[in-house]
């Protein structure tokens, strides 16, 4: 297995499939009465979170605990970080405490790459700036496979603020590896210039959600921050919702089997209408459940193989 999980591009098709298959095996645990495995007993996993993210942190914490690891939560607020300690000094501190793995969420793109240079333990990127969020892409892929039976050949529309989205970057990378066909849909201001050239030949883009929906097996909506309209990316929240929001009328354009995904937290009424979020097509709750299994698989595969 790989040493760190910094980017979805670290996973080739075999490794990505191994993570998904391992997650499926571990998911069976959740249905048992005792949800714990002894696999990572005596190992220390640090959740190093420089951004508020209750859902991702709790998901990693649950994953590590179900594998019997010792979990230390280190949040930037209320720690030495708020006193101005550098990432490198924090890394050396964690190293000295014997962290076997560090799960890092950071507002700066590339922070996990820097961390991986400074510590001996394994590093898992839990979201870095506008770069990547590889375990989100893995849990999304897992959810697609669970609901639709395969990933290769699926037509996936990713809709919204691609420019600022680490979820989109990781999904584009992983879905390409696994053979899905991705179309990015957004107003032109929220699509990086030249993204097809930058991210891969099979990638397509569109400014027309209505045209893309009938040809989609999966539509994944990205969170759009209202602050973006102050930076002139779009004129108003209402106009964004009108052009790119998924409401029930639009949802009817999807093929019968198609699913609707959202990484959360949702802006109901902005990129996704409440009725759509709560519909049978929506996988939002499944994604949360699958997140724990996938993160267990990642920690297991990164840490489980080597002897203490």
């Amino acid at each position: 297995m790989i040493r760190h999980l910094l980017s979805a591009a670290d996973l080739d098709v075999d490794r990505a499939t191994l993570v998904l298959d391992t997650a499926a095996e571990l998911a069976n645990l959740a249905s048992q009465e005792v949800k714990k495995l002894p696999t990572l007993r005596g190992r220390t996993v640090v959740n190093l979170f420089y951004e508020d993210s209750t859902r991702t942190r709790i998901s990693f914490e649950a994953a590590a605990k179900r594998l019997s690891a010792d979990v230390i939560n280190f949040s930037a607020r209320g720690s030495s970080v708020s006193k101005g300690e550098s990432l490198k000094d924090t890394a050396l501190t964690l190293q000295a405490m014997g962290a076997d793995a560090v799960v890092i969420r950071h507002p700066a793109s590339g922070a996990p790459h820097r961390l991986a240079e400074w510590i001996d333990g394994r590093v898992v990127n839990a979201g870095d700036g506008t770069h990547e969020h590889p375990t989100q892409a893995l849990l999304d892929a897992y959810t697609m496979r669970e609901r639709l039976g395969r990933i290769a050949g699926l037509r996936v529309a990713i809709v919204g603020d691609v420019l600022h989205s680490r979820v989109a970057r990781s999904n584009v990378s992983l879905l390409a590896t696994l053979g899905a066909r991705v179309t990015l849909v957004a107003p032109p201001t929220l699509l990086p210039l030249g993204i097809e050239r930058a991210l891969g030949a099979r990638l397509r883009t569109s400014f027309d959600l209505d045209a893309v929906l009938p040809e989609s097996d999966v539509v994944m909506l990205l969170r759009v921050q209202r602050e973006r309209m102050n930076e002139a990316f779009f004129p108003s929240a209402r106009e964004y919702a009108r052009c790119y929001g998924l409401d029930t009328a639009r949802m009817r354009r999807l093929p019968q089997h198609a699913i609707v995904m959202h990484p959360g937290p949702m802006n109901r009424g902005m990129e996704i209408a409440p009725d759509v979020a709560d519909s049978a097509r929506s996988t939002v709750v499944d994604q949360v459940t699958n997140g724990v299994s996938v993160r267990m698989a990642v920690l297991y595969l990164l840490l489980g193989g080597s002897a203490k």
């Binding site: 793109s109 590339g110 870095d128 700036g129 506008t130 770069h131 990547e132 680490r166 970057r169 990086p192 210039l193 030249g194 993204i195 050239r197 930058a198 991210l199």
Partner: peptide, 11 residues
């Protein structure tokens, strides 16, 4: 601003 920035997620 170019292909590498898109991949790295840097403005």
């Amino acid at each position: 601003e170019g292909d590498v920035a898109v991949r790295l997620g840097l403005p």
